[in-house]
């Protein structure tokens, strides 16, 4: 197994982990963090798969460089919208998740 393939496999694991977090985390801040882990996994897959042969491929590296900057900007926008929502509604959870969001931050679903 080449180092590139190892990176790609780790990236696949991070992607699945992030997806689980995105669904299971009741609070928006957790969802945003999970989404970033999911995105990092996708970047790792892109870069890792392209250098399975041993030589780094500049095309996916440039695409991932672009992607990282977009991810930072999207995260900042998501945080701003979350803060706005928290100011307006008093809680950083989506309305349809209100029923299952635990009142205390370390509730049974907070894992």
């Amino acid at each position: 197994m080449s180092l590139g393939l190892f990176y790609a496999l780790v990236g696949g694991g991070l992607f699945a982990l992030g997806l689980a977090g995105l669904i299971l985390q009741p609070r928006l801040l957790g969802k945003i963090l999970a989404f970033n882990i999911l995105g990092s996994g996708a970047f790792l897959v892109l870069v890792g798969l392209a250098q399975r042969g041993g030589t780094p491929d500049p095309v996916p590296q440039a695409m991932v460089l672009t992607g990282i900057v977009v991810a930072v900007a999207a995260t900042a926008l998501a945080l701003a919208l979350t803060r706005r929502l928290a100011d307006l509604s008093g809680a950083a959870v989506l309305p349809e998740d209100d029923a299952r969001a635990p009142a205390n931050p370390r509730g049974p679903d907070g894992d």
């Binding site: 696949g12 694991g13 992607f15 699945a16 982990l17 997806l19 669904i23 897959v45």
Partner: peptide
């Protein structure tokens, strides 16, 4: 999600 990770 674990199944997805294995499939990936």
């Amino acid at each position: 999600c674990a199944v997805l990770a294995l499939a990936l």
